[in-house]
């Protein structure tokens, strides 16, 4: 285990409507075995003892699955490691003397609440618009009643692995949520249970995405590069097909 010292430039903003700015802190000695969030914990403990307000940041499971954490580190949402959430990024990937610029996820459809904490409820709103199968509790047929080819189940799972962290939006130059919407539309379109509402879902979710102020996709692939779960942009191609099919051929409006 070795120690490194870093210069941290962290976005500080007291509340949504207050101006923010980057503030510089010396990290002090940081063990390379620490996670990125533990490094922030160490800084926050020090700030607290010095009577300063600690840096607010969202986090919960710290296992890379809840999707609550996330910040932009030197321009990369969730930091420079591929397929890694911020909580699973470890300090051994940085060098002694590095400067880290740490900012919140930014997008028109997100709102900064405080420091690195962001309101991403727009992601929930897109699910509310149609990201579900309309089935009530009770009366479901036997689980093995409809066989599902393994390949479809696996592909559906690839898409369903999305953790809803919203890094794709922060990475996109258009702040588009296409990867997020595509993951949900693909997951359900690939399964027989999702098919009855396939057209309605694609139309509603895309419409909601537009209404919430997310941009459109211009094939930059930044979302895929930033996604901590490796969700493929092939899902966006599938979403485009689903949307087109629904818009042209279905009776749904």
């Amino acid at each position: 285990m070795s120690k490194i010292e870093l210069t941290l430039k962290i976005w500080r903003q007291a509340k949504s409507d207050a101006p923010g700015r980057l503030q510089t802190y010396a990290s002090g000695p940081i063990s390379t075995d620490m996670s990125f969030l533990e490094m922030l914990d160490v800084l926050n403990e020090r700030l607290t003892r010095e009577g300063e307000e600690p840096v607010a940041f969202d986090h919960d499971c710290r296992e890379g699955i809840c999707g609550m954490c996330g910040a932009v580190v030197n321009g990369h949402p969730h930091g420079p490691e591929k397929e890694t959430t911020l909580c699973q990024l470890h300090m051994r990937h940085f060098k002694d003397g590095d400067t880290l610029v740490i900012e919140p996820f930014r997008a028109k459809a997100y709102k900064i609440e405080k420091d690195l904490v962001v309101d991403r409820s727009s992601l929930d709103k897109m699910i509310i618009s149609g990201g579900f199968v309309s089935v009530n509790t009770g009366g479901a047929p036997d689980a093995n009643g409809i066989p599902i080819p393994q390949k479809n189940a696996e592909e559906a799972m690839d898409a369903a692995a999305c953790i809803g962290c919203g890094a794709c939006v922060a990475a996109c130059p258009n702040a588009s949520a296409m990867l997020f919407v595509a993951a949900k539309v693909s997951h359900l379109a690939l399964l027989p249970q999702g098919q009855p509402e396939q057209a309605r879902r694609a139309l509603d979710m895309v419409r909601e995405m537009d209404a919430l102020g997310f941009g459109n996709c211009s094939n930059e692939r930044e979302c895929e590069a930033a996604c901590p779960k490796g969700i493929s942009i092939r899902n966006i191609a599938r979403l485009n097909r689903e949307f087109l099919k629904a818009a042209i051929f279905s009776d749904e409006d």
Binding site: V135, D142, A143, P147, P149, E154, A156
Partner: peptide, 17 residues
Amino acid sequence: DQCVAQGVPFAREYGGQ
């Protein structure tokens, strides 16, 4: 049964079970 009806992608065998 309920979870499959909701579209939970459980692991499957080649035959789809």
